[in-house]
Structures are given as C-alpha cells and as structure tokens.
Design a protein around this nucleic acid. Structure first.
Length: 424
RNA sequence: GCGAUCGUAGCUCAGUUGGUCAGAGCGCCGGUUUGUGGUACCGGAGGUCGCGGGUUCAAACCCCGUCGAUCGCCCCA
C-alpha cells in the first residue's frame, strides 16, 4: 500500500470463521507432519489415494449415522445447480468406502490406503479445532483378520514416534461384533435409565441419542454411575473375545504400548470390534499444548460400513489424525537457512547477481537474491537472514565480489561460479 | 446452540482513579558514519483506539448493542 494511493475505500473481506491461513513456523510444522506421514506410510506399504473433497450428501448421511451430530448439524451441505444435495467431506472414511465400491477396488482387496487433506465441519472453533481442518488418514479395506488392526496401529505408533511426540498412550477397547455391541448397548440403557434423574442434563439426552457416550462424560455426577455400568466384556461373544485377544497379542509383539480403556467408545455408528485413540498422558507436555482437545489420533474397525452404502459386507479398519493437533505437538520447525544470499550492492551489477543466483540454483543450492531497497542496507539485511554463505557484488571503480561463509559452502560456490567474470 | 475473556499502528503490546492518551519496540522507507560491514545515530510514512449508539463539560478508558477473535461446554480429529 503506497503513500500516494492511501487506503482503499473497499472493505477487505474476512476469512471464513474457523478457517486458517498457515504461514511460517506453523506451516513448517504442518509440512513436517505430512512429510513424516508420507514417509512412514511407505514403510508399511500403504498406497496413496486421492479423494474428492465433496460427495453426495447421502454418502455421509447413510454411513456415519443419521442421528450423530456430524450429520444432523455439522455438515457443510449445499445444493448444486441440478438441485442435488452435496456435502463437503466431514471425514475420509465414508468417501473411501464409496470409492472402494464404485471403482471395484474389491479386486485389490485387502488394500492398504493412505490419504490426507482438508475436511469440513460446521462447529464452533476453539483450540485445535477448526471448520476447515486437515487430517492424515490410513485404512485397510477388505481385511477381516486382527492382524490388520495390529499393522494399522503399529504404523500409527511409529508415526508418532518419528514425529517426536512423547507422553502419548494408545487407549484400546473393543465394542465387540454387531450382536455384542447391541446387547451391551441395551444393558447400558437399562442401567442408566434406572438412575436417569441423577445424571447430568447432557447425559439424560445422551440416553436417548447416543447412550454409549455417557461413558465418556466429563461430568462428575455421571462418573459414579459409569464406574459400575455393565462392561462390554460381559457381552462379548467367543469370537469377539478371541479377536480382541489377537489384536492385543499382536500389539505386544510389535512393541506397541497400549492400555485398556473400557469406557472408550467412538461416536460414529459404524464402528465394530476394535476402537482406539492415542491420548496425551495426564499432566504431560502434550496434554497442555492441546487444551481440551485430547484425542490426537483415533479410529477403529468398521465392518458394517460398506453395507450401509449398498455394498457387500466388507471388513475394514482405519484411523485418522488431525494435522493441526499433531503440528502443535511437534514443536517449532524453523524455515531452512539459505545456502547463499547474493547481495547486489549496486544496481549496475544487477544482471550479474541474477546470473549468479540462477547458476547456483542450477547447482542445487538454496539461494536468495537481495537487490532491492537501500543499496547500503542490503548487506546488513542479508546478514540478518543468517545464510550459510554470503556473496556480494558491487561496482565502484570496477566490478568486485566478496564471498564469505562456511568453508564447504564457499568451496561449492567457487566451483559453480568458476568464471573470471565473477572475480572469485 | 450455550458460557467466559478480549478487540489500540503491518506485527507484539503500553496507555495508571474517564481530563496533552494517541504511544513504545520490531518491521518498512530515507539519511549519517564516505565504507567489507550482523551492532550505532538521525529522520519519515502508517491508527476515525473493531463498528454503532448512550452517559459526561470531557471516553481508547464507563453503559448497551453489534461484529470479530480466543478459550471452554455440547460433539468431535
């Protein structure tokens, strides 16, 4: 904005609530998370998949569960010009299931898939929570065996380690198979209904909508009833029991530390068997950085999902993690230093600066060219950036150059600009 | 949808019981030191103190509304 033009009378539009413009150190942390995920995912041979950001609304409505908050009030839905209801994806799993069915990926099953990108949920923004947020996601589709759960969790565990995130523990539970889950749910409803009047207002409502979530309640009034609520273990079929034992046994073999969380349930209707969340330990550094958003990676098995979309029964297991939350835990990632800053101290030698910068970049060096502003201040400006080497060009009586910096970088520069014209 | 806190230059913030309170640092622009130098000095641009009402002789400061941000509840990554 120049002095003569002054301020425009136009009002600058504001960013949409709950969206973010990520820049600088935060953007570096974000990129570090994604790059680490990409690296680890390849170690486990998960295949990259790109998904559309929006789908027909029914993809999410039918798979996630009509009564969940996500579907009933948190979706970004709109009609396209043909009058069809479309929705910006609130999660990855439903879209992946749809893609699996419509593209005939059964032929690849079991298939390990990984993706990442933006998701959208119409919620109140707060710490670590946005309306447009970003996740990394991993799924194994078409694998019924507990070994798939183990592999998936081992990858998650290794990812967190490679991100350098400490003080986080895998909380693990089983919801049993469909019948187990329903029996348990019925018993829970009965248990809590008998003390309904003593429950918190929120939990009285949960009793009708989503009784399993009463187990998660933070309200003191609910906790004593949660303690002696029926446990899923009482309702597990032999198969479900064996499945869970196989998962925990595999985790031990893989060296993944875990803890049983009997009251851990996930909000979405499609989960069966394994449910898990990586949660910061109480009082840990990580817990402090995340505020009230405690789960950094969560998922489970969703054997019933494909059928809800009209496909054949297909077992699958997956997880997702919020990139923003992970980025808060990986610490400051500073932007990389320049290898060289080329300073043009006199505009008469500008072309020489441009030429040198290009040649150095061709040679694989990260180069910044400083050639604007007060000529006398360019050098100091470059020094402040703390490059590995500093190359300055000037023209007084004659062209002259000056190079100083780390010995090895200096040597590379001299060999790349090995031309008398640069006077090195 | 509900609650709490906050909203002063591009950025981070000062502004005492309402009366030179429109400021500092950083950043930006220009200049000095006639120089091979990350330091210093001088000067400049830039703000209707989120917006709109109200109280008052007088409001950035008090009251109401509104918008926005932040944090929390619900829910969830």
């Amino acid at each position: 904005m120049s002095k003569s033009s002054g301020k425009s009378s136009q009002k600058t539009p504001q960013a949409i609530r709950g969206t973010q413009d990520i820049f600088g150190a935060d953007a570096e942390s974000f990129a570090f998370v994604v790059e680490t995920f990409e690296r680890v995912r390849k170690l486990y041979r998960f295949r990259r998949v790109e998904m559309p950001v929006f789908e027909k609304t029914e993809v999410f409505a039918r798979s996630i569960g009509e009564t969940t908050d996500i579907v009933s009030k948190e979706m970004y839905s709109f009609e396209d010009r043909g009058g069809e209801s479309l929705t910006l994806r609130p999660e990855f799993t439903a879209g992946i299931a749809r893609a699996f069915l419509t593209n005939g990926w059964q032929q690849h099953a079991p298939v390990k898939l990984a993706t990442h990108g933006p998701l959208f949920r119409y919620e109140r923004p707060q710490k670590g929570r946005y309306r447009q947020f970003h996740q990394i996601d991993a799924e194994i589709v078409g694998a019924a065996e507990p070994q798939a759960d183990v592999e998936l969790l081992a990858m998650a565990d290794q990812l967190l380690k490679e991100l350098g995130i400490e003080g986080v523990t895998l909380h693990l539970n089983t919801l049993g198979d469909g019948d187990s889950r329903e029996a348990w749910r019925a018993a829970l409803v009965e248990h809590f209904r008998s003390v309904k009047d003593e429950l918190s207002e929120d939990s009285q409502e949960r009793l009708e909508k989503n009784p399993l979530r009463i187990l998660d309640s933070k309200d003191r009034r609910d906790q004593k009833f949660v303690a002696d609520a029926p446990k899923i273990d009482q309702f597990l079929s032999d198969d479900a029991r064996a499945f869970f034992d196989a998962v925990t046994g595999g985790l031990d073999a893989a060296g993944v530390k875990w803890t049983r969380a009997e009251s851990l349930v996930r909000g979405l209707d499609y989960y069966r068997h394994t449910a898990f969340e990586f949660i910061p330990d109480e009082g840990s550094d990580a817990a402090g950085k995340l505020g009230s958003q405690s789960t950094i990676l969560g998922g489970g098995r969703y054997d019933g999902l494909m059928e809800s979309l009209g496909g054949a029964a297909t077992p699958a297991v997956g997880w997702a993690a919020g990139i923003e939350r992970l980025a808060m835990l990986v610490g400051e990632k500073s932007e990389t230093r320049a290898d060289v800053i080329v300073v043009v101290e006199n505009d008469a030698v500008l072309s020489k600066g441009i030429e040198a910068a290009r040649k150095l970049r061709d040679g694989g060096m990260a180069v910044e060219l400083v050639a604007s502003g007060s000529p006398k201040k360019r050098f100091d400006k470059a020094r402040k950036e703390n490059p590995k080497a500093l190359l300055s060009f000037d023209q007084r009586d004659a062209f002259q150059s000056n190079l100083r910096g780390d010995a090895d970088v200096e040597a590379s520069i001299r060999s790349i600009l090995n031309d008398p014209a640069f006077d090195l």
